[in-house]
Computed example of a mutant assay.
Amino acid sequence: MLSLVRHERPARGRRRHVAVLAGIAALLVLSNGVVRANDDDDDDDDDTKKILTDPTPAKGWIVTLGGSFQVGPKYDGANSAGPSFMPSLSWRRAGEPAGFSAPDDSLDYAIYDTDRFDVGVVGAYRSGRYSGSNIRLLGMRDVPWAIEAGVFAEYWVIPERLRTRVEVRQGFNGHHGVVADFSADWVERFGAFTFAVGPRASLGSASYMRRNFGVLPGEAALNGTISAYKPGAGAKSVGLASSLEYAWSPSFSTTLFARYDRLVGDAGNSPLVDRLGQRNQFSVGIGASYSFNIGG
């Protein structure tokens, strides 16, 4: 399932929904200068020019609340889909431009942030796999939900056009393996629209692969339709993701998104996928966000 809760950090990287405060402030100052010029004299022109060239910085924070509804695989390798909803919360300083963030980015916080390179901590939520949800999983152990925490790095190869990103996360609760996700996005802006598309790839440690795609001898005996299987570390999936955002106003926007993944290697060869599920995994969804200023 896609993880869509994320923090847009207060810097250039991936901020969205900019309030047009600077333009409003400039118009107010300009009209004030014109009135003073008419009422007083030409001596005030210098003061007006000084104000116009030295505007007061915007104050406060821009908070963005949102959420997304999506339909995707119930678990890695499932041949059935289910709905899910994920809320989101982000913030940035007033006056800072909004940047790009892919819908499948995990929640993150930048520790080091420049115009083109960011690095920081990251977290994600992964839904579980439960034998009671599908009769074909009879005898299989449940894989509970998991929290994954780790680090990320992001680099804009071409500023505002081509972004690359890697996340490395350690699992807790449902699994205790390590997952590494790689992505690249080509970003195009057309007026109020922002379109992005790019490849995806994911790797898993041996612990992660065994927990999600392995079959113990006892499980195979209870299920009766599959054999025991012990996968190793390596590639888990490759795919493609795309999104289309439309800004209805500086405060409100909606996003359509879709992602395709194909399970490969030991993950794709697992009987849980090859016999009971499918290698092709599709997800589609829609999201909305609203931004407002506080403390200004």
Rank of each mutant, 00 (worst) to 15 (best):
D44R: 03
S106I: 03
A98F: 00
L244K: 02
I24W: 09
E245M: 09
R116G: 01
A110G: 11
Y109G: 12
M86G: 04
Y290K: 08
R12G: 15
R6T: 08
A37C: 03
N38T: 09
K49I: 13
V215C: 01
V264D: 05
R163L: 14
T164Q: 07
T225S: 13
A22H: 08
L107D: 04
S291Q: 14
L4N: 13
S205N: 09
P57A: 13
L276Y: 09
A235D: 00
L276M: 07
V151I: 13
V166C: 08
I135N: 12
F195E: 03
G128C: 02
D76L: 12
G23P: 06
V71M: 13
A22R: 10
F257V: 02
N269V: 01
L138R: 15
K50S: 15
H176K: 13
F100H: 11
L52R: 10
A110P: 05
G60M: 06
S84I: 03
R165G: 05
T254F: 04
S127D: 12
N223P: 03
G33L: 05
R92C: 02
L4W: 11
G265W: 08
P103Y: 06
L272H: 02
D104T: 12
T255P: 01
F257E: 05
F213N: 09
I111H: 01
V178M: 14
G72Y: 15
L28T: 11
L256Y: 11
R165P: 03
V121W: 02
A192F: 08
D185R: 14
R129E: 04
S283M: 11
N38M: 10
G120Q: 02
W248A: 15
T254N: 03
D43Q: 10
P217M: 06
Q281M: 02
S283N: 06
L272A: 02
D46F: 03
G72A: 11
G177E: 04
